[in-house]
């Protein structure tokens, strides 16, 4: 009988995933492809925002989309109507994507001729925040009907994101949503978080978001 051994590992469960994500980012850098990870709860308007963003930028940038859902292809079919390359990823019951799954999706999509790939993560404010996908920037959408207390209830996702899009501001008059409060709560979790209040439906505020995204893509391709 072999001797029993104790092997000390002492690292986060996510350490392997974090290393894979770093490697993926370095590859994307070489290929000059910008990967944006878009997260939110279900029904926040992720797909609508994505479609408006694609429509505004598809003549300037070569865009691809990875749609992640537990099941079905309804979002991918909708996004495909914009004419950009789209792939549906099924997580097989899991509530998030990790770097390995993202890499598989990117391989399938083929990124060599793409400037921007948007990963529409599974609709969920908890699990996707735990796993680095290899994205260059993380953005999350919080829609007005969800309420301004979300940064208090789901602090992690606000910590890992670079951008917070407040969507559906066209319905602000009908909801008890305090824009100043959400700014305060979100900055308490992450002082560097950028906030873009907008309405993907009416187009209000979209230009600020689109300017930011285009500038980030430019910076990613320029810096070495």
């Amino acid at each position: 009988m072999d001797k029993v051994r104790i092997i000390e590992i002492k690292e986060s469960v996510f350490a392997d995933n974090d290393r894979e994500a770093e490697r993926l980012r370095a590859e994307l850098k070489r290929e000059k492809t910008f990967l944006l990870n878009l997260m939110s709860s279900p029904g926040s308007g992720k797909t609508t925002l994505l479609m408006r963003t694609i429509e505004a930028l598809k003549d300037k940038l070569r865009i691809g989309v990875l749609e992640a859902d537990i099941d079905s292809a309804v979002d991918a079919e909708k996004v495909a109507t914009t004419g950009v390359k789209t792939i549906q990823l099924h997580t097989g019951g899991m509530c998030h994507l990790d770097a390995g799954m993202t890499e598989q999706g990117l391989k399938e999509l083929g990124t060599a001729d793409l400037d921007l790939v948007v990963l529409e993560n599974v609709g969920n404010l908890v699990c996707p925040a735990e796993f680095d996908t290899g994205a260059v920037k993380n953005a999350m959408i919080l829609s007005v009907p969800e309420g301004h207390d979300k940064p208090l209830k789901y602090p992690l996702i606000f910590t890992v994101c670079d951008v917070l899009i407040i969507n559906k501001i066209d319905v602000l008059p009908y909801f008890d949503f305090d824009l100043d409060k959400v700014k305060e709560y979100a900055h308490m979790r992450n002082p560097n978080l950028k906030l873009f209040p907008l309405s993907a439906k009416t187009g209000e505020g979209m230009d600020v978001w689109l300017d930011w995204l285009q500038q980030e893509i430019k910076d990613w391709n320029q810096t070495t």
């Binding site: 029993v4 051994r5 104790i6 590992i9 690292e11 986060s12 469960v13 350490a15």
Partner: peptide
Amino acid sequence: EHTYLVQGNEINLKEIKAH
């Protein structure tokens, strides 16, 4: 309200026992 978590969000692999 200005508080932050010091510890308690860890999910660490500590050690494995094997032969």
